[in-house]
Nucleic acid binder design. Structure first.
Length: 213
DNA sequence: TGTTGACCTGCCCC
DNA sequence: AGGGGCAGGTCAA
C-alpha cells in the first residue's frame, strides 16, 4: 500500500496511546461537536474541580483525573459551567452507571471481544459508535477498532472507498468504512486510522494557515 | 434504512 | 460591534 507508506513515513514516532480507560471514556464523551482546544480545557477544568491532589511540581498543584464515583456526585449546572454544555447529563448518567457497576466493569471489557466491548459501551447514554470505538482503541487496547470521525471519513473515503462518498454518515456507511480499513489493515486497523487521522489534520487544516490581516 | 434538527459554548470570520 | 458558521456526535422523531 504505497499511499499508506507515504502517510506513515510522514509521521515518524506516532503512537496510539493506551491510557486509563475511565479517563479516555470521559474525554471522548465531551468530544461531540467540540474543538480539541475546548476538549482539553474541559478536562483540565474537571481535574481542577474534582480531582485529588497528587503532587506539587514547580509550585503547581497537579491533580489526578477524578474517579467516576466522584463525578457521579457532580452538579449539572456546575458541569455546564465547565464547558460540558448539553453533554453534562450524559456525563452524570455514565458516571453513575460506572459507580454502580463497580470499577472492575469497565476494565473487564478489555478481556471481552472488541465487538462485545463496543456493544456494551454503546448502551451508555451519550456513547454512540464513534465514541465507543475511541474507548475501545485508546482505552481497552482493541486495536482493530476504527473510530470514524469527520476527518477519517474524508481521508478514508477518498483513498479507499470513493463509492461511499455521499452527504451523511449513516450507521451503515460508518460500519462499511471501518470494515474497509479492517480488511486492509487487519488487527491493527486502529493504528492505520490513527495515522490517517493525524495525516488529515496535519495536511488539510485551513484554520491554521488562515491569514490574519 | 436514510434524513433532519436540537443540543452548549467559544472562537473565527465577515 | 454583532451575527452566522462551525467544531474529533448522539438521539429521537
Amino acid at each position: 500500500e504505497p499511499r499508506m507508506k507515504a502517510v506513515v513515513e510522514g509521521l515518524p514516532g506516532l503512537r496510539v496511546l493506551r491510557q486509563d480507560v475511565e479517563e479516555v471514556l470521559f474525554s471522548f464523551l465531551c468530544a461531540s461537536c467540540n474543538t480539541v482546544t475546548k476538549i482539553s480545557r474541559t478536562m483540565q477544568a474537571l481535574e481542577h474541580r474534582y480531582g485529588d491532589p497528587v503532587a506539587e511540581v514547580a509550585g503547581e498543584l497537579l491533580r489526578s483525573f477524578p474517579r467516576a464515583g466522584k463525578l457521579a456526585a457532580a452538579d449539572e449546572a456546575d458541569l455546564r459551567g465547565m464547558l460540558w454544555g448539553y453533554r453534562a447529563p450524559s456525563l452524570l448518567a455514565v458516571a453513575r452507571f460506572l459507580k454502580d457497576r463497580g470499577n472492575a466493569w469497565l476494565a473487564s471489557l478489555r478481556e471481552r471481544s472488541y465487538l462485545d466491548a463496543r456493544f456494551e459501551l454503546m448502551k451508555l447514554p451519550g456513547i454512540g459508535r464513534k465514541i465507543a470505538d475511541c474507548i475501545c482503541l485508546f482505552g481497552l487496547g482493541h486495536n482493530e477498532a476504527v473510530p470514524v470521525d469527520t476527518h477519517i471519513r474524508k481521508v478514508a473515503t477518498c483513498m479507499f472507498a470513493p463509492q461511499l462518498a455521499s452527504c451523511s454518515l449513516t450507521e451503515r456507511k460508518y460500519d462499511a468504512l471501518a470494515s474497509v480499513l479492517r480488511e486492509r489493515f487487519g488487527a491493527y486497523a486502529g493504528w492505520a486510522q490513527q495515522y490517517l487521522f493525524c495525516h488529515s489534520r496535519a495536511t488539510q487544516v485551513p484554520s491554521l494557515v488562515r491569514k490574519h490581516s
